[in-house]
Amino acid sequence: MKKHAIIPVFIPHRGCPNDCVFCNQKAITARSSDVSPEDVRNTIETYLPTLTGRGLKTIELAFFGGSFTGLPIPEQSAFLAVAKEYKDAGLIDKIHMSTRPDYINRDILDNLKTYDADIIELGVQSFDPDVLRASNRGHTIEDVYKACHLIKEYGFTLGIQLMIGLPGDSPAKSIASAKEAVRLSPQLARLYPTIVLRDTRLLQMYEEGIYQPLTTEEAVSTTKEMYRILDDAGITILRVGLKSTDLITEGEAICGHTFHPAFRQLVEGELAKESLENQLHQLLENAGETEPQAGNFAFKSNGHSFSNMIGNAKRNKLYFAEKYPGIKIRWQLDTALEDGQYSVIKY
């Protein structure tokens, strides 16, 4: 049962005068009008009846879409006052926001503390300075380090958002960014393969032939390695890829084949496949075999991870059936296994 829910408040392009090459905030927030504190109250009142009484452990109010701390502090305070009212009443548990690394300083954090905010996610995107420049991010790596250290000093929960396949990026650079993120010890992370949207400089760059988006396979391959690095470090990965509901219409994603409604499952399915195949070969090696010619095997996971074990559109089942036609595989549940843990047994 789901134990965590988010009440999202979108503030489209508010607080952010920068124009990153990939950004069309109207498209990715599906909102174009300004948001008022009263809108925040109305949003909370709309969501709460559907959330209360469901045994949820945590209900968060999250400000997404723009760079929240880039707003003038009086505007931030007006939004936060509404959030704090509901938190003080015990109706929500946490206040969550996303922002840019260069919009963090002590005055801002002092104000967030006043309103009992909890979680700050930074849109870092990359730890490579050339990628940041080519993407017109408008902040430096030093801004990222400073912001992360301040956020942790003040006791906020830190989240880091990374993108894959930006201009000037490479698999090696993306993987290095994941490793650098681990060094800064965030509690949360998001991984977003770059998608080419309408009305962006990135679309112009694609049309001019100076930017080539990743294929789905390339995006999955790199994201998988970044996911593994973050997960092994105990960092909670909140999201992998945009949701379909993050786009106004299906036509918003132009040419970046990285958009897939089940992108996270593609990534987690690849990780499951690697684990299963590694264990299969280890069993064969222990038995003195080089290739599985015949035999019966059980591939196991718990219920939550079963769809990843099978793979999106059953691609893992098809992969093993095609690559190892001589063996018989039973796909089974094992409640003793943890999420993301898989077991291969020969019987």
Rank of each mutant, 00 (worst) to 15 (best):
L91I: 07
M1I: 14
S177N: 03
R14Q: 15
D93I: 10
S301F: 11
K273Q: 05
E252H: 09
L284I: 09
I141Q: 06
I6W: 07
N286W: 04
P12R: 10
T245M: 03
K2D: 10
E142A: 08
F10P: 02
L109E: 00
E250K: 12
K243M: 11
T140K: 10
D34I: 14
L230I: 14
K57E: 15
K346N: 02
A81G: 02
D110P: 06
L158W: 04
P49L: 11
I141F: 07
K94E: 04
E142Y: 00
I175M: 05
K94N: 06
A298I: 12
I175F: 07
K84I: 02
S135H: 05
L242Q: 00
N296K: 15
S33I: 10
R14V: 09
P292A: 09
E225G: 01
P12E: 05
T335S: 13
V35S: 04
K146M: 02
P101C: 09
S174P: 01
Y342V: 13
Q187Y: 00
I254V: 15
R228V: 11
D93C: 05
N136I: 00
A219P: 04
G138R: 08
F259A: 04
L318Q: 12
T194C: 09
I59L: 03
T99R: 04
L284G: 06
V267M: 08
K273V: 00
D232N: 07
Y86C: 09
G256D: 01
M163L: 03
R183N: 02
M309N: 13
S98D: 07
L214D: 10
L91E: 13
V124N: 00
E153W: 05
L280D: 08
Y324D: 10
M97P: 01
H149D: 01
K57F: 08
R264C: 07
H96V: 07
N312Q: 15
D334R: 06
H281E: 04
E45S: 12
P74I: 10
E338R: 15
L112S: 06
P37Q: 13
F156V: 04
E274Y: 12
T200C: 11
T43F: 10
F127A: 01
V21R: 09
R31Q: 12
L56S: 14
N111R: 09
I248P: 02
G295V: 13
T58N: 14
A89W: 03
S33Y: 12
Q25K: 12
I254Q: 06
P72A: 13
A272K: 14
T52D: 05
L109V: 08
A117F: 08
G256V: 01
P49E: 10
G326Q: 11
K173V: 04
T258Y: 03
H260V: 01
P325H: 14
F263H: 01
S185P: 00
A78W: 02
D231Q: 14
L230V: 13
F127M: 06
